[in-house]
Amino acid sequence: MGILLVVASVAGVLTLVSFQDTTVPMYVARQDISLGQKIDASTLRTVDVRLDAVQQHYLSAEQEPAADLRANSLIREGELLPLAAIGGRDPQGRKPLSVELTEELPVAVTVGTRVDLWAAERGANSTTYGEPKRLLQSVEVSSLREIDSGFGGAAGQVVELLVTDEDLPGLLSAIANEARLTVVQNPGGAAE
């Protein structure tokens, strides 16, 4: 009789544990995914997690992601993919624009950081620059990469900024007129 009670107890505990272990496969970002970047098997990995009531807010790994899926905000490496962060359009109407820089970026500037962009217009003699003016305030960095000089050394950096249509004319004019552009980290971090 004692052996039957022990077997029944063990079977009951195993059954209870199996019912409470309700993990589901979900997608997480294999690396940082920036705004507009295509989301596919190369950018995702699968993990089993227990989400309970919030499961419907994240991309499930029970089926393949749609072929035209893109990020509409920054998704950090290792994060679950919120459904609100995928689809391909930034909810704030921002667009990524690449800016070439000749100076080093501050170490603290990474993808997702908020920065200000300053521009100094080229002077009349083409060797001097005017007083710097702030073109953009508290814009988000969506991508960073080094510019390769071809001889093994870097010749600068390209920073991709998320800008609105209102910000484009001044920024495009500065780029076209070869203004000296400088990125300054904005520790406040919130757009005004």
Rank of each mutant, 00 (worst) to 15 (best):
I3A: 14
I3W: 08
L4G: 08
V10I: 06
V10G: 04
L14R: 15
T15N: 09
T15M: 06
T15C: 07
L16F: 07
F19Q: 13
Q20S: 15
Q20G: 15
Q20F: 12
Q20I: 13
T22R: 15
T22G: 13
T23P: 08
T23N: 12
T23A: 14
V24N: 09
V24T: 12
P25Y: 07
M26F: 11
Y27V: 00
V28A: 02
A29D: 04
A29V: 00
A29T: 04
R30A: 10
Q31W: 08
D32W: 07
I33G: 12
S34K: 05
G36A: 00
Q37T: 12
I39P: 05
I39C: 06
A41Q: 05
T46M: 12
D48K: 04
D48G: 01
D48Y: 04
D52M: 11
V54L: 03
Q55C: 06
Q56L: 09
H57K: 15
A61N: 04
E62K: 07
Q63C: 03
P65V: 00
D68H: 14
L69C: 08
A71P: 10
N72G: 14
S73C: 06
S73Y: 14
S73W: 15
L74R: 05
L74W: 05
E77L: 13
E77F: 09
E77I: 13
L80F: 14
L81R: 12
L83M: 07
A84C: 05
A85L: 07
D90S: 03
P91D: 02
Q92S: 08
P96R: 11
L97Q: 00
L97W: 03
S98L: 10
V99I: 14
E100V: 15
T102P: 01
T102D: 01
L105T: 14
P106A: 05
A108E: 02
T113N: 11
R114P: 10
R114A: 14
W118Y: 13
A119H: 02
A119D: 09
A119G: 09
A119S: 12
A120D: 00
A120S: 14
R122S: 04
G123E: 02
S126Q: 01
Y129V: 04
G130C: 05
E131C: 06
K133Q: 12
K133C: 04
K133W: 02
R134P: 00
L135I: 13
L136A: 11
E140C: 10
V141Q: 13
V141R: 15
S142I: 10
S142Q: 09
S143V: 00
S143Q: 00
L144F: 10
R145W: 04
E146R: 06
E146C: 00
D148M: 07
S149H: 06
S149A: 01
F151G: 11
G152A: 00
G153T: 11
A154N: 08
A154Y: 05
A154D: 03
G156Y: 07
Q157A: 11
V158T: 14
V158P: 12
V158K: 14
L162M: 06
T164I: 06
E166H: 03
L168G: 03
L168K: 13
G170Y: 10
G170R: 06
G170P: 11
G170A: 15
L172M: 08
L172K: 03
S173N: 12
S173F: 08
A176K: 02
E178H: 08
T182F: 01
T182R: 03
V183E: 01
G189R: 07
E192L: 15
